[in-house]
Amino acid sequence: MADEITFPIEAGHIMRFAAAIGDENPIYRDAGHAEATEPGGVIAPPTYAIASAHFDPDVARPLPGRPWRGSGAEPTGTPAGPGTDESSRGLHAEQRFVYHRPVLAGETLTVRRRPGETWTKEGRRGGALSFREQISEFFDADGDVVITATMVGVTTSRAVDQ
């Protein structure tokens, strides 16, 4: 994860994000409607901060010529080896957002990420659980924080029993 990324808030991206989460609120796609609302423009939906991943050069994504753990001809494109099991057993345990003000389309935010706490726990369904917190702060052009996002990831020592 890059320490700092630049995150342009584009109206079209908000529209596609809202469509993907099935949110038909016109504030996400109709500039005319949005202007007449209290925020005064097209705003980012509550979980949109997560889409900053697109602008992070270090986020895992398929890249030309590089191995990828998803399936192509075979169930995995990544050779088995250290880290393979661990990476496929990372789960999203918790996510929190603090909104300092609405984020409007047309803004450019700067995202800074820092590690938070880490802790372990013995779980009945997944063996030893390692939790890791990551805090992302989203700053506007004036340097004021607009969103604080906290992600808690968990790595299990075996696949969680269903």
Binding site: P8, E10, A11, G12, H13, H54, F55, R61, P62, L63, P64
Partner: peptide, 20 residues
């Protein structure tokens, strides 16, 4: 009618594996 946005072009290029 639609805007041609820089971020969208970046995402689209990524999806076709074009690293230009």
């Amino acid at each position: 009618t639609f805007p041609v946005e820089a971020g969208h072009i970046m995402l689209f290029a990524r999806a076709i594996g074009d690293e230009n």
